[in-house]
C-alpha cells in the first residue's frame, strides 16, 4: 500500500530522532537509544519547539557543535519529577516489612538508583532515623544527571512543596513532626544536614555502567518505565547481581518484575507496593541441562 504524506513525514521524523540519539551517544556517551520511543519523541519535539528550529536534524547539528546545548537536551530527556514520601503507602510498607529484616544486620547498604533531585532518598533517611537505623546504614544515591545530583546533594527544596511533603510524611506513618527535619529560609527549605552523613551521592548511569556494590536493598522507582524491554532486562540483571541473597528490590507502582527473566530468583514481598525479595538460593540457567 502506498504511504500517505503523514506516514512519510513521521518516518522521516523517526529517522532524525534516531540519528540525534546516535549523535548524543557518540559525542557525549549518554545512551538513550533503548528508551521508550514515544517518550523520547515527545521530549525531542518539545525541545525543537522551544529552540525555534525547523528540523530535528538542526538539533543534531547544535548538539555536535554547541556544548551548551547538551545540558538542555539532557534536561528534556531525563525526568526528574519527584517528591518526598511519594506514594506514602510504599514507605509504610518498607517500614513495616523491610526494616524489621534490616534491623537484624549490624550494618546494611541501600542503593537509590536514579535518585534525581534526592527527595526520595531523604525520605528513606528520615524513616531510618525514626527507627534508630540511620547510623547502621550506608546509602548510595546515584543518577546520571549531574544537575539533578547536585540538587540532591544540596538538599534544598522550594518551600511551596512543604505542605504536600508533610501530608505525605504523615500518611507514610511518620512518627515525629516533619518540621523537625528542615529549616525554612525565605522561599526554600534546607533539610537537616545530618540526614546525609551516611549518604554518598554519585554519578552512575544504569544504561552504561555496571555493578559497583553489594547491597541489602535497591530502590529504583519510576525509572524503568522510560526504558524499552531490552534495557529493562539489562537493568534487572544489574540489580540481581547487586543484591545480597535475601535483599530487597523496590520498584515504582506501575513497574513489574513478574515478566522479567530474573523473577525466578525473587519472591513477591508486597505485590501492591512492588517490593520483591531475592531468594537465598538462586538458580542460574544451565545451557545444556534444562
Amino acid at each position: 500500500m502506498k504511504k500517505d504524506n503523514s506516514e512519510i513525514l513521521n518516518d522521516n521524523l523517526n529517522i532524525e530522532i534516531e540519528l540525534l540519539l546516535e549523535a548524543l551517544y557518540r559525542k557525549h556517551g549518554y545512551d538513550f537509544r533503548n528508551y521508550g520511543k514515544a517518550h523520547i519523541k515527545r521530549r525531542v519535539l518539545h525541545r525543537l519547539a522551544a529552540s525555534g528550529l525547523n528540523y530535528v536534524s538542526d538539533l543534531q547539528h547544535k548538539l555536535i557543535y554547541d556544548d551548551n546545548f547538551l545540558k538542555l537536551l539532557l534536561d528534556d530527556l531525563s525526568i526528574t519529577v519527584t517528591e518526598m514520601f511519594r506514594d506514602p503507602d510504599f514507605y509504610k510498607a518498607v517500614r513495616q516489612e523491610v526494616f524489621p529484616i534490616l534491623k537484624t544486620y549490624p550494618f546494611f547498604k541501600i542503593w537509590h538508583a536514579g535518585c534525581a533531585t534526592g527527595q526520595e532518598v531523604y525520605s528513606m533517611a528520615i524513616m531510618l532515623q525514626e527507627e534508630g537505623l540511620l547510623d547502621r546504614a550506608q546509602i548510595y544515591a546515584t543518577d546520571f544527571n549531574n544537575i539533578a545530583l547536585k540538587k540532591a546533594r544540596d538538599g534544598i527544596y522550594p518551600v511551596d512543596k512543604i505542605k504536600e511533603y508533610t501530608q505525605n510524611f504523615q500518611r507514610a506513618g511518620g512518627k515525629s513532626s516533619f518540621s523537625d527535619y528542615y529549616t525554612a529560609r525565605y522561599d526554600s527549605v534546607i533539610l537537616d544536614q545530618s540526614l546525609k552523613k551516611n549518604i554518598v551521592f554519585a554519578d552512575h548511569n544504569l544504561v552504561t555502567d555496571s555493578v559497583f556494590a553489594e547491597v541489602n536493598m535497591i530502590v529504583c522507582r519510576n525509572v524503568l518505565i522510560y526504558f524499552n524491554k531490552n534495557l529493562q532486562e539489562r537493568v534487572f540483571s544489574l540489580f540481581e547481581q547487586s543484591l545480597i541473597p535475601g535483599g530487597y528490590l523496590c520498584l515504582g507502582s506501575k513497574e513489574n518484575l513478574r515478566f522479567s527473566n530474573i523473577f525466578r530468583n525473587f519472591e513477591v514481598e508486597n505485590d501492591k507496593e512492588k517490593i520483591y525479595k531475592k531468594q537465598y538460593h538462586t538458580r542460574t540457567i544451565k545451557k545444556n541441562n534444562v
Binding site: G36, A38, V81, I225, Y226, S253, K254
Partner: peptide, 21 residues
C-alpha cells in the same frame, strides 16, 4: 490511564507511562 501517570502510546501499539510534570 492509571491515576498520576501520563499514558503514552508507542508506535509498536503498546502502552507506556511517564511521570513528567
Amino acid at each position: 490511564s492509571p491515576p498520576n501517570f501520563h499514558m503514552l502510546i508507542e508506535e509498536d501499539k503498546s502502552i507506556s507511562f511517564s511521570v513528567e510534570n
